[in-house]
Structures are given as C-alpha cells and as structure tokens.
Design a protein around this nucleic acid. Structure first.
Lengths: 172, 172
DNA sequence: CGTTCATAGTTGCAAATGCAACGAAGTCAA
DNA sequence: TTGACTTCGTTGCATTTGCAACTATGAACG
C-alpha cells in the first residue's frame, strides 16, 4: 500500500475502451463468497482441533455426528438434505463413524435401498462431550461479536445457505 | 431471544446424571462455524463454476489470482498474510498459475528467499473478466439479502476472519 | 566471523475430496 | 408384467489438501 494518488493518463475518459466506471470494479474486500470462506475457515479450523485431537474425526465426520446427535436417527439422504453435504462425503463419513463404533445402520423398513443411521451409546456420549465443547466455543465467538450481531449473523447465514445453492443433488 | 421459561420435568434436578441445564445444550442450528461453512460452501460453489468451466482454476487458484489482481504485485508470503490461505496451497496455486501464463515471478531484490509475483497481461485480462463476473454475482447476493444486511454481514465477517484465527503461520 | 534461531518457499506422502459411473431398489404407466 | 426413469448409496480414479520435513536465506548476538 503506497498511498498512491491516481492521476488520469488521458484527459478524456470516454475514449477508454470498455473500462467500466470505477465504482463497479471488482473489490475483493467486499466479495461475499471470499469473506464467508475466510470466516468459515478461521472459525472451523480453530474448533477442528477439538475433534481431531480427541477422536481423529474429519470435519465431515464431525458434521454428520452432530446432525445425528441433534436431530436423531435418519438416513444418509436426510443428512444430505439437512446439511447440504455431498452424498459421497456423507457415505464415507458414515462408513468411518460406523467403523469407529459411533453409529449403527438399520435397514429401512419402508425402502430397502435406504438405511437408518443412529448413534450408538458411545456415539451419544461422544456427541455430548463434543457438543459441550462446541457450545463453549460458540459462546466465545458470540461474546466477541456481541449478542445482537451474532443473532443477526445467524439469520443472514441461514438465508444464504437456503437460497444460495440453487441446483439440487450436489452441494459440497 | 426466544424468551423461554424453563419448566423442570423432575422435581429434583440433582438426580439427573450429568445432563446440563437445557439452555446450554448444544444446538447445531445455532452453531456459527457450521452455519458459516454452509453459507460459504453454498455461495462459493455456485460461483466456482465460473472460473472452473472457463479456465479450469481451483478455488485456491482463483483466490490467489484475485489477490494479485486486486492488490498488485507481492510475494507469496504477503498473499498468505492477507488471505489466510495456507502457504503450501499458495505455493502450488502459484506454480499452476505460472504454468498457465497468468503470473510471473521475479526474485526479490531485498530478500533472495522471496519472489515477487505479478500478473502477466494475460493474467490481467483474465482477472478483469472474472472480476466482472464476480461483481455481478456479488450484486445478486446482496440484492437477495438487502443492502443493509449485506453491509452488516461484511463487517461481521471481517471481524471473524481477523480475530477468529489466533495461531499464526497456518490457517487454511 | 560462527552459532543459533526464524522465515520464504517447496516437496513427499497420506488422507480427503469431486465427479462420474454403477448396482440395487422404487415408481409410474402401458 | 414389462420398460423407462428416478433415487439411495457406494466405488474408482484423478485431483486437492494438510502436515511435517527440508533447503536456502536472513537476522540476532556473542
């Protein structure tokens, strides 16, 4: 940043080709997807150490666990729909969590393609522990933001997460 | 917020195991890192098709390009500091962008470990095109949010991105 | 100088991811 | 019933990522 002053090189700006008006040049500092990513990475990465160090979970695994813990037994498909996580990610996370004894699968009685996923007792206690950590972590974040801003943020994010992903089936 | 009154289900709470007070149970729906991720993924993924389809860039590559386009020539280190992208990611993105003729490296005159990165003419024009798309995309998002909420969101996200990642050197 | 420690950037390798393709089961209609 | 089409979930494969070295340079201090 060298505190530059912009001196017009030409007198008649209208002779410049397709150069659009300065006010709508792209501004990375204001680009929402970029800012969202930075904020998401910063916060998630910090909390990640909690589940990674203790249980070796990946972010996706923690997310699947959290959904099951929060909303109860459901199919992989439901998790996809609720969380907007891609189905192959869910599939692999479920496989890993099952190997780790966190959840178990039961064939659905109404649809033989699907399996109902539910936390094992171990899964429940792990969720309880991580949930408590998450809760504390979140409280900290909210404290630094202020409760009003935090509540505001939540509603805006919900809006973005809902409307943001138009196409269906995938998401990541 | 919700103005809830907590009605005890049992008379003697002390008989309940370790179950903490309902008001501080973990609520995934309100967990900021989770919501941030969903919103970030939803918006970024949608915009991703723009640079992936046209140029085959990854998200990281686009981010590096955007930083160079916006802030001008600088070293990889600077990009890391500004964007909070991990240095190996930056390193590989830079290598790829160089191969693609988007940027060029010049040994720093003051530090022989470092290289100054700058966009080539091609890089500038690619940035101009993608920047315009990004601009339009962002306008859309802001329109659905409303300008007030959008401005609000930006300031909160900046706050999170800054404070959020305490430890140094990494980030992802 | 020489020693020690920090920093810029790269690389190896294991793990996570994205995407397309697949098998199996469900749905709908002729 | 058959056939065309959709959906649930998994798998193969190429790409991207994370993390821990590692090289080369710089900086601090005796």
């Amino acid at each position: 940043m060298g505190g530059c002053v912009i001196v017009p090189i030409v007198d008649d700006m209208s002779t410049l080709p397709t150069m659009t008006d300065p006010t709508d040049r792209f501004d990375l500092d204001e680009f929402l997807p970029y800012l969202l990513n930075q904020a998401a990475e910063a916060t998630s990465h910090e909390f990640q150490s909690a589940y990674r160090d203790r249980y070796g979970f990946t972010r996706t695994q923690w997310r699947v666990l959290a959904n099951l813990g929060k909303f109860g037994a459901m199919t992989a498909r439901d998790i996809c729909a609720i969380s907007h996580i891609e189905k192959t990610k869910v599939s692999r996370a479920v496989a890993a969590l099952e190997r780790a004894g966190i959840l178990s699968r039961t064939p659905s009685e109404t649809d033989r393609r699907a399996e109902v996923l539910s936390l094992t007792p171990t899964g429940h206690s792990v969720f309880a522990e991580l949930g408590e950590l998450a809760q504390g972590f979140d409280q900290n974040l909210r404290a630094t933001l202020g409760q009003n801003e935090a509540a505001n943020l939540v509603s805006i994010l919900r809006h973005l997460a809902k409307g943001g992903q138009g196409r269906r089936g995938k998401d990541t």
